[in-house]
Amino acid sequence: MDTIDIFRELRIPNPAEFPVEDFFKVPFTHHIHIFSGVKDTKARYYYIHRCAEEKLSAKALAQIIKNDDFAKLANLPNNFGLTLNDEVMARKAVLAFKDSYVLDFINTEEIGERDKEDIDERVVEKQIIHNIKKFIMEFGKDFAFVGNQYHLEIYSEEFFPDLLFFNRELNALVVVELKTGKFKSGYLAQLMTYLRILDDKVKKPHENPSIGIVLCKEANRSFVEYVMQDYDKPMGVATYTTSQETPEALKDALPDMDELKKLL
């Protein structure tokens, strides 16, 4: 692919959206990677912008295209772009989380005969703690477990967020609040309190702002994004399924956890 081929491939539907300045900052080899490996116009603009902003090597560009970073940007309902001043940091935060997790090591059928809806967050939390290595493997790379029911105190008021992690890539504390039911707007207010205290009392001076994630069974994305826009701390909402909720066809397609650990 030569220069003429690249410009022929541009097919700019809306010239006003084309990142002209970024385009001329990106080396020719990088453009070849983008225009030969990416077909969606908006995705191409995204990778051009990242190359210009982060001065990516050709190898690093090829890797993020392979990882399909552009597609992942739309996954997690979040306010990172509004609450994290650094655009690179905001993008890394989006890529650090998924919109849905398969916690296949949690099997509520083995807990007892009670109704699934009666199984509270503490039960799920205990199973996650018992299987913390598996949870981190599902949650993503660079997460280090700090503690559960982590004690926070401010003005003689005590709080105990469910799970606290530290993410090395983000250089930030990550608090995860577990909910076994449908998302409620009040969960964000609860998370906001935790993040405020973490930033004031726990976060180190060299660390980035703490990030909060509500992990619940069900969430209306449009509603989450609507109520989240007035919060000034970085947070997102993800959902999860447990082992007995995973379709049999999908279970057969998923690698066995023990086998996966051997491969890793």
Rank of each mutant, 00 (worst) to 15 (best):
F139Q: 00
D22V: 07
D115G: 03
R44G: 01
I34T: 07
K134R: 10
G140Y: 02
N220S: 04
K184R: 14
P77A: 06
E225V: 07
L164P: 01
T246Y: 04
E125H: 12
V174Q: 04
L215Q: 00
T83P: 09
F165S: 04
L178H: 05
M137R: 06
F143P: 04
F159I: 02
R11H: 07
D256W: 05
E169L: 12
T108L: 13
F105I: 03
K66H: 13
A52C: 05
V20H: 10
Q63L: 12
I197Y: 04
F105H: 02
D118M: 03
V237H: 04
E153V: 13
L188S: 01
D5H: 11
L178V: 14
T29L: 04
Y47S: 09
M89P: 00
R91T: 13
L76D: 06
L191D: 01
D142A: 13
F97S: 05
M1A: 05
K116Y: 12
A249E: 12
R196V: 12
P15M: 09
E21L: 13
N107G: 01
N67D: 15
L56T: 04
D99R: 09
I65S: 10
P27V: 09
Y155T: 12
S210P: 02
R8K: 14
V124I: 15
D252A: 15
P27A: 08
P255F: 09
V224Q: 09
D258F: 15
I65L: 10
R11L: 06
M235Y: 00
K92P: 02
T83H: 07
M1G: 03
K92I: 00
E87C: 01
D120F: 05
G147Y: 11
K39S: 13
V124F: 15
R221I: 15
S185A: 13
I213E: 12
S185Q: 09
K116G: 03
E259I: 06
H33M: 14
N148I: 00
F24C: 00
S156N: 14
L263H: 09
E53G: 06
K42T: 02
D162F: 08
V224G: 11
Y231C: 05
K72P: 02
E21Q: 14
A16P: 04
S243I: 08
E245K: 05
